[in-house]
Design a protein around this nucleic acid. Sequence first.
DNA 1: CCTTGACCTTACCCTAAGGGCAAGGTTCTA
DNA 2: TAGAACCTTGCCCTTAGGGTAAGGTCAAGG
Lengths: 138, 138
Amino acid sequence: MGLTVGAAAEAAGVSAKAVRLWESKGLLPPAERTEAGYRQFSDADVGVLRFIRQAKTLGLQLSEIKDILDLQRDGATPCERVTELLDGRIAEIDRTLADLRALRRSLTSARRAARDSQRRGEHAVVCQIIEHSPDAGE
Amino acid sequence: MGLTVGAAAEAAGVSAKAVRLWESKGLLPPAERTEAGYRQFSDADVGVLRFIRQAKTLGLQLSEIKDILDLQRDGATPCERVTELLDGRIAEIDRTLADLRALRRSLTSARRAARDSQRRGEHAVVCQIIEHSPDAGE
DNA sequence: CCTTGACCTTACCCTAAGGGCAAGGTTCTA
DNA sequence: TAGAACCTTGCCCTTAGGGTAAGGTCAAGG
């Protein structure tokens, strides 16, 4: 009872295009084919698709997900690698959060400057965005 | 006293490749050329390059920056558009911040699950990442 | 039996913002 | 006058697919 790409994709809540891409990138082993060349997916495959989708929502890249899946297919326990990747993602997110908070400060400051310029009718230097931004000078 | 791409790029603190790209995308008017075909940039151009660089650090896209610069070149005051774009960016950042914070919670929860699986020697379902993640079911 | 529509196949171009490299022309310096 | 250090364009690469085309396949209905 094999599923076609479309059916498998729908069952996993992803697009058929994504399924083909993931297969081509090795996240899934090459799917069985019917005589006509149609891909045949099993329920287990759908589970993998769901896992990939979930891992993606956690911000893992396809290459990292492939990494995990390869380990698992080798019979190894991917837990270590998984916690490693997740820790990496968490650290990355913390960095991004800090960056975004700083960026937000720059933006509000730039916006204040832009509005001030607007009120004064200035606009020669594009509302002073340059000057009022943090590291303006070089 | 025109500057070559490399010189202008260095003066603005960006890459020559970026300068060519920005020109090709219309953020800069087509540069003058020497007889040999070398681009010639003025100090004013360098100012624009610096502006673009700065705007990019604020997270604006090239298309948005072009938008601002086009307005300015038309003699219009881009301040309104600028504050509009900056407000949009700020709102976007706030959304991203919220998303990242939620994602971070998911990640720490997933990592905890992975570590628990690791301790128990489980790994059949790739450390339960799927099950323990927020919206696991479907 | 045949058609129609819904599926499938591969392949190509597109996205953002360049980085890297190649082949070839120019300019400056020793 | 040679070589270094520029410059030119053009093409391929990156992420994770989306969109579309051209063509093959399958199930239902006339």
